[in-house]
Amino acid sequence: MGREKLFNAAVLLVMLAVPLLAWQMDEPFIITLATKVAILALAGVGLNIALGLGGLVSLGHAAFFGIGGYAMGILASHAQNYEPLFAWPFLFEGSNQMPLIWLVAVLASAAAALVIGALSLRTSGVYFIMITLAFGQMLYYFAISWSAYGGEDGLSIWVRNEMPGVNTLDPIQFFAVAFVLLSLTLWFAARLAKSGFGLALSAARQSEERVETVGLAPFKLRLMAFVISGAITGLAGALFADLNRFVSPTMLSWHTSGEIMIFVILGGVGRLYGPVVGAAVYILLEHLLGGISEYWQIFLGLLLLGMVLFARGGLIGALLGREVAHD
């Protein structure tokens, strides 16, 4: 375990050092890339709680990512257009304050995860994969046909939302916000994995019968994990929409679900920092290969295929060996 902790600290340090260096050298684009990595890693950390800890292969996490994004888009667009969102029971004109937006994003995606999870967790295995995928698509088509908030074209906001004490328009300050949220979530995920709840969840992944025998309900454990997982991914969605000042149904599409899953897998399933490494490598590949060829996703596909067939522990597994790998 010692080596992995050291490695994790190094990852966090690099994540912090790169944008700081870019800030010194006045390269805002690199800071934005680093911010994107931090936000996507956050989405992956969310998925990893369901996938790595709970063994729940959800192919519908784009739903929560997108709900977070739309929470930002809807609140901010009402605030910028001075059209009240609702007038009863109190007048609410939307908001451009990040903390409130995050709260709404987390609550909305947790609620969606509760409903989707309660239905999907009635099944398991391949049914679960297909059903989470289908519910994700349901929200995708709903967003496309929901013309009040942009429909297929999506929804833009003019100015990035505000946060007390921070100038979010400054790339390095917005990066700091994303980085702090990522670090807090990583800390939370580590605590969660070691808690009684996390241990029971892991046990339910390994052997459902044994967990039932000691009087715990696997369904409840998994539903709780799914809700926490969805809420974190929703928070990442709100940040991602704020980074781009834009939200569209693409955030809800199943390709997004696949990508979030790729972050987790590239790094290593069940590894706390897997999604961080995975998201960083993914964005780096996108940036480097995308510069070489328009068809860079072919290479991504080949890489992913090779990884699944020959290097199942992900990058962290390849670097650190499999001693604490996901079983």
Binding site: L51, V57, L59, G125, V126, I129, G258, M261, I262, I265, V269, Y295, W296, Q297, I298, L300, G301, L302, L304, L305, M307, V308, L309, R312
Partner: peptide, 24 residues
């Protein structure tokens, strides 16, 4: 013989290869 997660990932990778290959 792999678990469903590996199957999902590998066949998702195949989609990327097929789609971009066809576009090419």
């Amino acid at each position: 013989d792999r678990d469903h997660l590996d199957q999902v990932l590998a066949t998702f990778a195949l989609i990327l290869i097929f789609s971009e290959g066809t576009r090419w």
